[in-house]
Design a protein around this nucleic acid. Structure first.
Lengths: 250, 250
DNA sequence: CAGTGGTCTAGACCACTAT
DNA sequence: TAGTGGTCTAGACCACTGA
């Protein structure tokens, strides 16, 4: 029996897992039709709405697709999409079995020069908060970051910022408006002198360069940051397809 | 009236859009509780299951979160996740108003050297198919790619491969097994001589380097590819947060 | 305890597809 | 016309939260 109606595990989830296994295991191949919703409901003695719940979870996972009036079919895995997911640099390091450590190099109030004023959308000479930090993995520098935000609240630089030195937190603490959206641009670059010395590498070393801008609800800039990741120590990895569970280890 | 029960637009979708607007517009702020499902159902004269459909779509969009026994609340936008989504390099170029063009430099059958044999998981000296191509945007080279797959079927190199020169298609055409999953690694690098001449840049130019491996269901390697993107012409952009519609233009 | 979201049912009508 | 998935209803019971 595939479905245990008296289990603590929801019926729709049992059916979802069963069908998922059929697909990932290859018993159902791309293009194959699934049993109709009515058939699945009758076969397992459950309601069609419950079947639909399982079906829609499979569709959300891109394992199947539905066609009105025709049926439900196994999808082809999309393998050429590239989705790099850098959830949290700290956790990434930890996951590799290394110990991350953030080292604050500098934190002070500065006056905006022309370039910074443009980036933050403020007047030249306005007060700004400036952070410079290095992230280490097992004591070795892997990332160098500069962060800027407007100095609005005349607040001292707080401990909370050092505990959560993310750009959106910085913006939240020092702005009148809460951050609402963020834009990030990733590109390839070479280190300048400042970055080289902070990372302990030769000038011109290839790096990943990420620029982040944090906005409020009205699309006003709240903060701007630059992150430089050592090219030889930083890799973004993306997995696509179906047999993903087993892949994480490698 | 917010809900038109006789509209062709599904009720759950009307309610979803209405609540989405309340949240994105700021009438409902992060942490605020939504009306309970029963309240929403009664207020709009619809079934609770229909309300739940709208609620679950909002939750899937990370605009709200639910807590059993407590209620449903507006979520905080997560701004420090980085999700770079390179759906299709061709479309990316086209979206920027440029004309993409793939130029095949070479396509031939070769014998695997030690390195390639290791990458494809085959014997040294086994026959492989080798592609070398350049992608141009408005006539200017922006990417250089090398692709390798096992030569199993003794098939000629087909036109279909030139029309869809993706690595997973190459693997599909020349392998006995359909591709099931894919791994991609992105890093910063510098061009070597071959890449420099193909891209028309000086050796040592910073580039994004992407390595892709395509696997079958049993995690055997079907194809391997290397893509080099010009650092000064290629940017990966990621938007997070709530006011995304308006951001796409900038 | 009353109220919440989570699950489930057994129907119903619809638009769409293929024959 | 028969069969499919898409939407919707009006109930029901449950586990969990907070007072």
């Amino acid at each position: 029996m595939i479905i245990d109606k008296h289990s603590v595990i929801p019926i729709y989830y049992q059916l979802f897992k069963y069908l998922e296994k059929e697909i990932r295991g290859g018993h159902l191949k791309p293009g194959d039709a699934l049993p109709t919703e009515a058939e699945l409901a009758a076969a397992h003695g459950i309601s069609r709405m419950t079947v639909r719940r399982a079906i829609s979870e499979l569709a959300a996972a891109d394992l199947i697709y539905t066609q009105k009036g025709k049926g439900t079919f196994v999808a082809k895995p999309k393998l050429d999409n590239v989705v790099f997911d850098l959830r949290n640099f700290y956790d990434e390091i930890r996951q590799k079995g290394m110990t991350p450590h953030a080292k604050l190099l500098e934190a002070k109030v500065i006056r905006a020069d022309e370039q910074l004023a443009k980036r933050l959308g403020i007047a030249v000479n306005a007060r700004c908060i400036f952070f410079r930090m290095v992230t280490l993995a097992n004591g070795e520098p892997v990332a160098y970051e500069e962060k800027y935000t407007i100095y609005r609240k005349r607040l001292p630089i707080l401990e909370s910022e050092l505990k959560d030195p993310s750009l959106s937190n910085l913006a939240a603490v020092h702005s009148n408006m809460p951050p609402a959206s963020s834009k990030k641009v990733l590109m390839a670059s070479k280190t300048n002198e400042e970055e080289s010395s902070a990372l302990g590498v030769a000038p011109g070393t290839p790096v990943l360069l990420m620029l982040q801008t944090v906005y409020d609800q009205d699309r006003r800039v709240l903060a701007w940051g630059k992150s430089v990741y050592r090219g030889d120590r930083t890799k973004l990895i993306s997995y696509d397809g179906w047999n993903l569970e087993e892949m994480q280890g490698s």
